[in-house]
Design a binder for these strands. Sequence first.
DNA 1: TTGAAAGCGGTACCAC
DNA 2: GTGGTACCGCTTTCAA
Lengths: 329, 329
Amino acid sequence: MASLHDVARLAGVSKSTVSRVINDEYGVKEATKIKVRRAIEECGYVVNQVAKDLKSNKTNLIGIIVPRVASNAVSQGVDGLSKTFEQASKHVLLANSGLEAGKEIQYIELFNQKRVEGIVMFATHIDDALITAIKRSRAPVVLIGQDGSGYNIPSVIHDDYRVGYCAAEQLHRAGCRSVGFLGVKSDDIAVDRQRYDGFSNALNYIGLSTPQFHTQGQFSIDSGREEMTRLLADNQRPDGIFCATDRIAIGAIQAIIASDLKPGKDIKVVGVGNDEMASVVTPGLSTFAYAFEPAGSNAAKMLLEIIEQGRSQVAKLVLGFDWVPRQSC
Amino acid sequence: MASLHDVARLAGVSKSTVSRVINDEYGVKEATKIKVRRAIEECGYVVNQVAKDLKSNKTNLIGIIVPRVASNAVSQGVDGLSKTFEQASKHVLLANSGLEAGKEIQYIELFNQKRVEGIVMFATHIDDALITAIKRSRAPVVLIGQDGSGYNIPSVIHDDYRVGYCAAEQLHRAGCRSVGFLGVKSDDIAVDRQRYDGFSNALNYIGLSTPQFHTQGQFSIDSGREEMTRLLADNQRPDGIFCATDRIAIGAIQAIIASDLKPGKDIKVVGVGNDEMASVVTPGLSTFAYAFEPAGSNAAKMLLEIIEQGRSQVAKLVLGFDWVPRQSC
DNA sequence: TTGAAAGCGGTACCAC
DNA sequence: GTGGTACCGCTTTCAA
């Protein structure tokens, strides 16, 4: 592959001159410019950004770590991130941990070797190893989805506690007296713990009894259906359920229908996220719309501020949500 | 940031020795190894991959260009790509063109400057400028979603012609006599042209009349609903419709219901893709399941083969699909 | 077993 | 206006 040196030889000038032409610097005679441009064309020269990055000690690179791409929260978040970074002339390295433990940490190290200027990570959980890895990282890290601000890691999160609280209020307002929670594994603070706590505390405040149940399934329609089927078979008969995600809620609705009960009437159902699916199921799923793409663009802005100013004014950004009432509650 | 040189000074050895220790090479005395490792620890040295890449003239980098991430086809495809590349120790640069014309071409050039070893592109259309840019690219390019094999560009596509053909057969088998097509803009060869042609030719072969209509909307539920509403208002009364995508089909179903007709009975509806939404709408949407993640992993394998062998055995990979019958047809 | 030095492809300072 | 040269951080002979 042709280098500056080759171009210089071909044009009969020095590397310095070629460099000047390429970078549109002042003080090069028009005639030489033309010579050089012809030489560039002739040998198909393409700038070597690797060499430039080394020399300038700057990569304009941002690393993004995701557990998987094919999820509403992540794919929309990545769109928000990449658009914002693109505007700031940053380029994006994408790493997919595939939910394998330890992979995120490897990627943080790899990204530091690649001299990224910052890292955005979609977190599914937080543990000590991860925190240590983030602390060791030269490149600043911003978290999306889980709150790391307690460990001094800037984070963009959704208002998971309050969404649980509001869910209880909505179910109560709809006349429910006996309710439960379909959650996920408990090390997911944002999705399970926070939403459950908000829900539970609101029930308490309202004067209803604590949740009848708190299942711990997966992030899928199937899992929601199975958990709900099991509960109904167990003779659990709530009049309202709050589901940690819309997919779980949709599965629950299917189970309710399969038991010859009417979701939205016999049992009210509330989800979280406002997945597009929520708008097409029957009955329509009442849910809380989360701002997934803004989560990405805000995280990007925070990270850019940290990169440019050395620190961010905001330690934690909590995004609001909107209640989207449909037929299920 | 500490460099080899700093470590060497701290350990009282030469850069060469430090390099040997870092890369686990033979012939370094145990005692020196220990000295060096302590020095590395002490100054928090992290390998500079940029310098390594320059020196070795190898980046292990792959560029991926997408129109957006938040789409079923793309997000699943990217999962397939990133998993396969990860296994081959390649890293992924992600560029989001945001559907802006010309952006893809800029990214191809940028990726070449960054010395990526190959590029995968999710194409929404193909034009001369794009083909020229791909031809000029040093890094080999593999297309996903549109067929560039006619221009000698390796491509992974779905069997869009045949899906149209099968859709006609399914509608016919379900008793339809008068059918139409809800498409997208016609420069989308794969999604509009191919599916329509297969559909139309099958009708002809079967002995039914050609499609009553061929609309050109967007890739959205709303667009599908609007087009179908307009058709029904126009006194079009097909007994079957084939929709270029599941979202369009879901919109159409909504419009049919809003007109007090029964989708799946008065008007049969068939989609393409097997979006998860198709399984949760009522009536369930009959559709063809596309292999989005395999599209990604196969494209990755093709690209890796080209990078390693210099060329690929396969010029074009056509992925099959499965008929997923539900209530809408 | 270790070190000195050249070079990867650029940039930038200093001469001429 | 243009060229020579040192250097960014690493690897890799070649010598010692």
